Simulated scan of single mutants.
Amino acid sequence: MAEPGNRVAAGEPRSPWLRGGFVLAAAFIGFIAVIGAVLGVASDISGDDGSTTAKEPTTGAAGPSSAASTDAGTACPAPADSPQDVPNSAPTGVTWTLYDTVALPSSKKAGPAVAGKDLARCYAHTPVGALLATSQISVRYLAADDWLEVTRTQTVGAGRDAYIADRTKAEQTAAPGPDDGAHGQIAGFRFVTHNDTTAVIQTVWRFPDGRMQAATTTVLWQDGDWRLEYPADPPDPTPVDSLAGYTPWGGV
């Protein structure tokens, strides 16, 4: 696990949708309650090679991308990652980079191969690609400035349109809640099931007070990429006492 590095300037903008008070006030449920509570003081993160990475630039894991190349309509480059078994240890070659206040993983082999300010897409059609996709998308559709593009492009499911409608209404009528300084980070994962078209993954989130919760997410392989499923009735997060039964994994 990478160690924290230098802190980002205290005045760095943060998405109000990562503030727990705002999310709870808008009555978002399921795993959103976990990921939506992510907030607080951002830190630079050390990569696997010991280097320090700051807030995510507008380049993909496979190299710089032009603004046009982040368009969801463009084809994905062929990933280097090849089919493999579900990982039972932390994937290698992963770099952790801050997105807003959250350390998110990326890999040159498994994706995202194309990453812009908001969208991060083009994941390998492998278990590791699915793991990276759920980690990235589940944060970005909440935290991105253009969350609507992320949600429309990278989520599917019966609950998606209701989320878009509820959030749009809340943004027009609600004010962000106070920033209480708490923030959650990825601490581990466990594959519930995986096949060529579907991966169900439990991600453990750890908060500064030591509390941990596991959120179950599903990604579906559609139109050449993994997409986060937003069900009509998202499962509630569950408290976790330890990482027993999970693979420890995280960037901070």
Rank of each mutant, 00 (worst) to 15 (best):
P176N: 03
G159R: 01
A165G: 12
R167F: 13
T197P: 13
F189N: 04
G188S: 04
D161F: 06
T151I: 04
V150K: 02
G184V: 08
I164Q: 05
T168P: 10
K169E: 13
Q154A: 12
T197Y: 15
T155S: 03
G157K: 04
T168C: 07
G181W: 10
G157V: 02
R160Y: 01
H194Q: 13
A175G: 10
D161G: 10
N195T: 08
A199R: 05
I186Y: 10
R160P: 02
T197H: 14
A158K: 02
A182G: 11
T168W: 09
D179P: 04
T153D: 03
E149M: 07
G184I: 10
A158G: 03
Q185H: 10
G159Q: 00
A158Q: 02
A170E: 02
A165P: 14
T173A: 12
G188T: 03
Q154M: 13
V192W: 08
H194M: 14
A187F: 01
A175H: 10
F189Y: 12
A170G: 11
P178I: 06
G159K: 02
G188H: 04
T168G: 10
I164V: 09
H183M: 09
F189W: 11
T193M: 14
L148A: 00
G157E: 01
T151F: 07
T153P: 05
E149F: 10
F191E: 00
R190M: 02
D161H: 12
L148T: 00
A162M: 11
G159M: 01
V192M: 12
N195M: 05
V156F: 03
Q172Y: 15
T153W: 03
G159W: 00
D196T: 15
T198Q: 10
T168V: 08
G188Q: 05
A174F: 13
Q172P: 08
K169H: 14
L148R: 10
T151D: 00
Y163K: 09
Q172S: 13
I186C: 07
G159E: 01
A199C: 06
L148D: 00
L148I: 00
A199D: 02
I186V: 11
D166C: 12
F189P: 01
Q154V: 12
H183F: 11
Y163F: 15
